[in-house]
Simulated assay, not measured.
Amino acid sequence: MNSIKIALCQMNVVDNKEKNIEKAIQMIKESKEQGADLAVLPEMFNCPYENEKFIEYAEELENSQTLKEIAKIAKEENIHVLAGSIPELERDDENETESIYNTAVFFDNDGKQLGKHRKMHLFDIDVKGKIYFKES
Rank of each mutant, 00 (worst) to 15 (best):
E33W: 07
T103D: 02
R91H: 12
L38D: 02
E98N: 12
E88W: 04
I86R: 00
C47L: 02
H117Y: 14
L114T: 05
R91W: 09
K75I: 05
H117W: 13
D108R: 00
A74C: 10
K116G: 10
L89G: 03
E50W: 09
N78M: 10
E88H: 09
E76H: 06
E56Q: 15
N51K: 15
G115D: 02
E96G: 05
E76L: 10
I100C: 06
F107Y: 08
E69S: 09
L114W: 05
G111M: 10
F54S: 04
D92F: 15
H80R: 10
E56W: 09
V105C: 10
G35Y: 11
K75P: 00
T103I: 04
F45M: 08
A71Y: 00
D110P: 00
P48H: 00
I79P: 10
T97D: 07
N63K: 14
K53W: 00
Q113E: 15
V40F: 02
P42W: 06
K53T: 06
N102Y: 10
T66R: 04
N109E: 13
D93T: 07
I79S: 08
I100M: 06
L67P: 00
D92I: 12
E62M: 14
E50N: 08
I100H: 06
T66G: 02
E60C: 12
S99T: 15
K53Y: 01
Q65W: 09
K112P: 01
A83W: 05
I70G: 00
A71Q: 05
V40G: 02
E52H: 14
L67Q: 08
E56I: 12
T103W: 03
E77K: 13
P48R: 02
F106A: 05
G35H: 11
Y49G: 00
D93L: 15
D108G: 06
A74L: 07
E96P: 01
V40Q: 04
A36Q: 10
E62G: 08
K53A: 11
S99Y: 15
F45C: 07
N109T: 07
N109G: 08
K112D: 09
S64N: 09
E43H: 14
F45T: 02
I55W: 09
E76T: 08
D93P: 08
P48C: 02
K32H: 04
D110Q: 15
E98F: 13
A74P: 01
H117L: 15
S64E: 11
I55K: 09
D110T: 13
E50F: 11
E96D: 11
V81H: 00
S99K: 13
N46W: 03
